[in-house]
Design a protein around this nucleic acid. Structure first.
Lengths: 205, 205
DNA sequence: CAAAAGATTGGACTAAAGTCTTATCTTTGT
DNA sequence: ACAAAGATAAGACTTTAGTCCAATCTTTTG
C-alpha cells in the first residue's frame, strides 16, 4: 500500500542549503522536493506517499515553527525535522513538545540527519497505516443507520440483546435485526472484532 | 486512590537553588523534597503518590541526563522537568526525545515552571492510573492456569468454542469449562470486557 | 405521489454459549 | 504415599444469539 519511494520535503530559504540537502538525501533511496518558503511548500500538492519534512526555523514570511503550528491545526501529521543555524533552547523545546522528530543545529552531522530521516519516515508510515485503518472503519460506521449505530454502541459495551431492547423500548427481535445488520456492514468477523473496531474509532453516538 | 498531595522532588547540587525552589513550590499546594545529588535522590524511598522531578542538568557525579536514563531503564516513569543554567540545544533535544515534560533555562519564568509542574503531575496521575489498571488485570491473568490462559487467548481472537477445541484437540465441553473459569477469574462482566482487558495487558501466551 | 429506505415485529428454528453435577486421570507438593 | 490442583469430559438443560421469511408502518426523496 505504501511501497512507494519516500519523499523528503526540504524547506529552507537558502537555495544553496536546499541544493546540498537534495544532493545528500538523493544519494539515499529518497526522492527530494525543495522549497524556498513555507508558502511555496503549502501550495505544493503533496502526493499520498510516505514523507517527512526538513524545515529551517528561521525563514522570512512563515517561520518553521509557525509552519509546524499551521500543519498541526490543519490535522496534517507529516513528521518534521528542524534544522537551524541560529536556534535557541526555547525554540527547540517548543518544537519537540509539538512533536518534532528531531532538531538539528548547523553544522550537523550527516549521519544524524539521515538517522532522523529514517525515523521520520518510519513514523509517517505507521501513522498513515493507522489512519487508513481508522478511516476505513469510520466509513463503515457511517454506513450504519442511526438505530443500527445505537444498537452497535450498546452491543460493544457487553449488554445483552434483551437489555438493549429494554433500553430502547423495542423488542429483542428488532435488536437482533439491527445487530445483525451492524455486524454485516462493519464486516465484523466476531464480536471481539466488533469491539476492537469500536474502540479504534471511538464510538460516540 | 491518588488523592494525596503531590510531591515534587528537586535535585540540584546548588543548595540555594533547592531552597528557593522549595519556597516557590510549597507556596502552591505541593510538598517538596530536595536533594543535592542524583545519588541522594536514588537512595530516597519514594512514597506511592503523584509526583514529578525537577532536575538540574549539570551536576557533579550523575548528571541530570544520566539520571533520566537510569530511571528509564529502571522502568520508572516519573515525569521530569529539566532546569539548567548552561545547557545547549543538543541537550534539550535529547532530554525531550526521552520524554521530559519541559526543559527550562535560567533565569526561567516562575509561571512557566508552575505550568510545567501541573502538567507533569497530571501526566503522573494518569500514568499511575493506567499502570494500576494494567497490573490489576495482569494479576488476574497470572491467576489463570496455563490451559485457561491458552483458551482465554483464543477466545479473545473471536474463535468459537468448537474451533478452540479443534485447535487444542480437546472436547468443546472442556473448552467451556476453561472459558467459564477464565471469565470468572478475570472478573469479566462480558465478552466485550474480556476482550478489552486482553488488549490492555497484551495477551501473549 | 410513489418508490425506496428505515424501523419495527412475529414465527420457527439452528447454533452457540453458559450452568449444573458428576467423574476420571495426571501431576505436584509435602 | 496422599491430598490438592489441574485437565479432561459427559449428561441434561437453559439462555443467548443468529438465520430465514414475511409483514406493517413511517419517513425521506426524486
Amino acid at each position: 500500500m505504501f511501497e512507494l519511494t519516500p519523499i523528503i520535503y526540504v524547506v529552507d530559504d537558502d537555495a544553496s542549503v536546499c541544493k546540498s540537502l537534495k544532493r545528500l538525501i538523493t544519494s539515499m533511496d529518497f526522492h527530494v522536493e525543495t522549497f524556498i518558503s513555507a508558502q511555496e511548500f503549502l501550495r505544493f500538492d503533496r502526493s499520498d506517499r510516505p514523507c517527512c519534512l526538513i524545515l529551517d526555523i528561521r525563514m522570512p514570511g512563515i517561520s518553521g515553527l509557525a509552519l509546524q503550528e499551521e500543519l498541526t491545526v490543519a490535522n496534517c501529521t507529516i513528521p518534521i525535522i528542524f534544522i537551524t543555524g541560529h536556534g535557541d533552547i526555547s525554540m527547540s523545546v517548543r518544537a519537540m513538545k509539538k512533536g518534532a522528530v528531531d532538531f538539528l543545529t548547523k553544522p550537523y552531522d550527516d549521519q544524524d540527519l539521515l538517522d532522523a530521516i529514517h525515523k521520520a519516515i518510519e513514523q509517517d508510515i505507521s501513522t498513515r497505516q493507522e489512519q487508513s485503518e481508522i478511516s476505513e472503519i469510520q466509513k463503515r460506521v457511517d454506513s450504519l443507520t442511526s438505530r443500527e449505530c445505537e444498537v452497535f454502541a450498546l452491543v460493544v459495551t457487553g449488554m445483552l440483546n434483551k437489555q438493549i431492547a429494554y433500553t430502547f423500548k423495542i423488542s429483542e427481535k428488532t435488536v437482533k435485526v439491527h445487530r445483525a445488520r451492524a455486524m454485516q456492514k462493519m464486516h465484523a468477523k466476531s464480536l471481539a472484532h466488533l469491539v476492537r473496531m469500536a474502540d479504534k474509532v471511538g464510538i460516540e453516538k
